[in-house]
């Protein structure tokens, strides 16, 4: 049992507050992905869970034990560091074996585990090399193998595949998902790559400026962003946002068109729609096409709607050209609304 509970954790560095009251529970064996812009506090949160940083306030629980006063080695975790931290004075083999030797496993077990994880990460031919003789991506895979070999209750991975080429990353992603699903490991995984996040996560926690804005399963995060930031951060291209003004009971005026929306007391709301949730039907929003980018399966059209930037993903068969005026009809059930003051979603 390795459920991780983070209770009201905050962290300040001098006068800078890196984390604001984080509350999060990661269930046993869950695969949790932390997603967020650079500098939002992902590594800091991971280091607090690992015990390399002490929280300024709050508690960290692993299993049914409070751990925030315990040193890292007593927390039953393994970690892949963002900067790898592969020991330069040890061979790849000894690097992967490091934690196992510290746990005093016998040589046969160590050898077996090192070979198995090295095979998994495709570094079996590098076992006798030193870290200085490896490429960045190879070094990163050593760091991942070193953590996996521990077969820990909790594994913390800080952008473990960031330095691999696209193909290898795809392959490693699948391998990781397989191994971690077969083991009893609870995983927290930091990444910048949304596709990676979507494909791996049981749940995604989106972080913004030291807070967790939303933690939910990938589809929910994508479909129903809890805040403006989530919609604008998740999805490539991200959500479109337009101003909406009140136009009667449950009706909202957006770029000269009327849409039915929430029964809110406010005068203004933010109208949001994903680029792929619009169709080229008449009666929609009037859009002046600026750029058309063919992406193979479909075209990405960047337009100007009511003076705002608006992106739409449309079929690549369409003959839309730059400079034209087109009508983009949002699918009614995919429209989302946000409060411009709080930036939170309005139902």
């Amino acid at each position: 049992m390795a459920e991780i509970q983070i209770k009201n954790v905050a962290k300040t560095f001098g006068s800078y507050q890196a984390l604001h009251s984080i509350d999060m529970t990661i269930s046993d064996r869950e695969f949790m992905v932390l997603l967020g812009a650079s500098g939002c506090g992902k590594t800091t949160l991971l280091r607090i869970i690992a015990g390399l940083e002490t929280p300024s306030v709050g508690e960290v629980w692993i299993g049914d034990k409070r751990v925030d006063h315990l040193p890292p080695r007593q927390r039953g975790i393994a970690m892949v560091f963002q900067n790898y931290a592969v020991f330069p004075h040890l061979t790849v083999f000894e690097n992967i074996a490091f934690g196992l030797r510290m746990n005093k496993l016998d040589d046969a077990t160590i050898k077996e585990r090192v070979n198995r994880t090295a095979n998994l990460m495709h570094i079996e031919q590098l076992l006798q090399r030193y870290s200085g003789q490896l490429s960045g991506g190879q070094r990163q895979r050593v760091a991942v193998a070193r953590a996996l070999a521990m077969e820990p209750d909790v594994i913390l991975m800080d952008e473990p595949l960031s330095n691999l080429d696209a193909l290898l990353r795809l392959e490693m992603r699948a391998e990781l998902k397989g191994v971690l699903a077969d083991s009893n490991t609870t995983t927290i995984y930091v990444t910048h790559d949304q596709v990676e996040a979507m494909s791996l996560a049981d749940r995604i926690a989106v972080m913004h400026e030291g807070r967790i804005v939303q933690a939910n399963n990938p589809v929910e995060i994508y479909r129903n962003p809890a805040a403006h930031f989530v919609g604008s951060f998740i999805g490539n291209p991200p959500m479109n946002f337009l101003n909406a003004t009140k136009g009667g009971k449950g009706k909202w005026n957006v770029a000269g068109k009327s849409f039915s929306g929430p029964q809110s007391g406010q005068e203004n709301l933010e109208f949001a729609i994903r680029p792929e949730d619009v169709t080229l039907n008449g009666g929609g929003l009037d859009a002046k096409v600026r750029i058309v980018e063919p992406l193979g399966a479909h075209n990405l059209v960047t337009c100007d709607v009511d003076g705002s930037l608006f992106r739409a993903v449309i079929d690549s068969d369409s003959k839309v050209k730059a400079g034209e005026h087109i009508s983009l009809a949002p699918m009614q059930d995919r429209i989302r609304w946000f409060d411009p003051q709080t930036t939170l979603a309005v139902a």
């Binding site: 690992a50 015990g51 390399l52 040193p71 890292p72 080695r73 975790i77 393994a78 970690m79 560091f81 900067n83 931290a85 020991f87 490091f98 934690g99 510290m102 746990n103 070193r146 521990m150």
Partner: peptide, 23 residues
């Protein structure tokens, strides 16, 4: 000696003495 190596050793179970002898 970069701090990160001590942190990695600590996470992977090295006591103070082991960090001294191994790092």
């Amino acid at each position: 000696i970069p701090k990160e190596y001590y942190e990695a050793a600590e996470v992977f179970g090295a006591s103070n003495w082991k960090r001294f002898t191994k790092i």
